[in-house]
C-alpha cells in the first residue's frame, strides 16, 4: 500500500486548487507505479501526451499501466501557474529516469504544460498534459 505525504484520498482523487499540492500529488502518484490510480487523476475525456501521442479513455489507461509498471521516477518543478476560475494552466520542468523493456536505463527531460479543471463536484483533475522533451524520447 502506497502512502502519501500529502493530503490525498486515492478513493476520491482531487488535485486541489493549490499549485504546490497539485504538483506534489501528481509526482507521488506517478512514482507509486500505480497506473490505474495515476489515470484517476484524469477525467475520462482528458488528453495525455505522455506517450508521444494524444491518448484518452481506455488507450490512456493502458499506456499509464504499462509505462508506470516499471516504476520510472518523475521529478518536476513548477515554473509558472495561472488560474482563471475553474481552470488552471501550469508549466513544469520535468525529468524522468527509468529502465526500458530491455533493462537499459533511460533519462527524459523537458518542459510540460498542464491544464487542470474543476468539475461540478468541486474536484480538480487533469484535463490536458503536453510534455515537450528536450532530450530523449517524448514523455
Amino acid at each position: 500500500m502506497t502512502t502519501f505525504t500529502v493530503d490525498f484520498d486515492p478513493n476520491n482523487p482531487d488535485l486541489t486548487d493549490d499549485t504546490w499540492t497539485q504538483n506534489e500529488i501528481f509526482l507521488q502518484v506517478f512514482n507509486s507505479g500505480d497506473g490505474e490510480l495515476f489515470n484517476a487523476l484524469y477525467r475520462e475525456d482528458s488528453i495525455s501526451n505522455f506517450s508521444g501521442e494524444p491518448l484518452t479513455g481506455e488507450a490512456r489507461l493502458k499506456f499509464f499501466k504499462e509505462f508506470l509498471a516499471t516504476k520510472p521516477k518523475l521529478e518536476a518543478k513548477v515554473t509558472f501557474h495561472y488560474t482563471a476560475g475553474d481552470v488552471a494552466l501550469i508549466g513544469v520542468d520535468y525529468a524522468i529516469d527509468g529502465v526500458n523493456a530491455e533493462g537499459e536505463p533511460f533519462h527524459l527531460e523537458g518542459v510540460c504544460t498542464d491544464v487542470l479543471v474543476k468539475g461540478e463536484d468541486g474536484r480538480w483533475l487533469m484535463a490536458i498534459d503536453r510534455p515537450v522533451a528536450k532530450s530523449g524520447l517524448v514523455a
Binding site: R43, D45, S46, I47, N49, P54, T56, V87, T113, V115, V117, A127, I128, R130
Partner: peptide, 8 residues
C-alpha cells in the same frame, strides 16, 4: 487538444 469542455 480538445476535450468536451476544455481545450489547449
Amino acid at each position: 487538444f480538445v476535450t468536451k469542455d476544455t481545450a489547449l
